[in-house]
Design a protein around this nucleic acid. Structure first.
Lengths: 157, 157
DNA sequence: GACAATCCCGAGTAGGTTAGTCAGGAAAGC
DNA sequence: GCTTTCCTGACTAACCTACTCGGGATTGTC
């Protein structure tokens, strides 16, 4: 009944990444510490770090003193980067998912609803791409930070 | 793996409402016709029209020549109105859902990720509230129509 | 080289949700 | 009454989520 949700994969993934961002430069952080810092299940979190590593967002070191660390500076990793790895394309409906089969929506251009799904998709992507892990750590509220273009904030889109 | 989705309830609901919008003023449209116009299951669609009627978005007439019709003009019904009835609050994660228990997220203000969920929630709500059924019917693309404030379009939010 | 810490990976699973179907009852018009 | 339509609730198959678990591979330390 309320399925416009980001799953725990994405939620936990972003939270885990903020932990790594906060300790950027401290060397590898073991999964145990990341999980403890955010109150997450360690074995579940391991499942999320695999994809993030394969996507190049984090790097890992095995053995004692091992763990995970951010591959880039916290300001260079966007929430969108993390979410797309863990959730797949951020598209509210399949028929506007650019990566999937184009034959899914037989209605294509004739579907009046399609327009709004595109707008929602683009809006969500713009927001998550505009917020970096660094932004999440800073105490200040962000309403238009890391703006993609120079327009004033507050527009409906 | 890609669960940032609007369910079929919301999708079909909006599509059904565009049918009613296109035939606004024609009197009641039977469910059979609505379903046929958009290629939906009639009995499933009946399940969606119940909540929409109880929410006051559509009205119904029973008996022969009966059916459903929009309670307001197509320009006065937003996609957000429809989605909130069928999907519940449009909130990407429970911890920023204003209508639910506030005790869900024990982290509350300490959670760095919370900020971005609020931004996503507000962004999605602004978009769907800014698009009316009328907007979906008109052929033109809408990039900033029915703007809530006067700012130029194209801002990141 | 043994040991321990850690990453790493796939299998399995309980529970919930989604996307429907189906049967039947209640109004309303002819 | 008869038909048309709305209206409701029960039911269900399939899928997905959010995990747990077991074990293997790597690396550093003694």
């Amino acid at each position: 009944m309320l399925p416009v949700k980001i799953s725990t994969r994405g939620q936990y993934g972003v939270r885990a990444m903020t932990v790594l961002a906060a300790r950027y430069g401290d060397g590898p952080i073991p999964v145990r510490d990341i999980a403890a810092a955010q109150g997450l299940s360690q074995s579940y979190l391991e499942q999320l770090l695999g994809p993030l590593r394969r996507a190049g967002l984090v790097r890992s070191v095995r053995g004692p003193e091992g763990g995970y660390y951010l591959a880039s500076q916290p300001s260079e990793v966007s929430v969108g980067d993390v979410l797309r790895v863990l959730e797949g394309p951020l598209s509210p409906v399949d028929c506007v998912d650019e990566d999937s089969d184009p034959g899914l929506c037989s209605r294509e251009d004739g579907c009046p609803a399609r327009k709004v799904w595109v707008m929602v998709r683009d809006s969500v992507n713009r927001v998550v791409d505009s917020v970096s892990l660094q932004d999440l750590l800073s105490g200040e509220d962000l309403d238009g930070r890391r703006s993609v273009d120079g327009a004033a904030s507050g527009s409906v889109l």
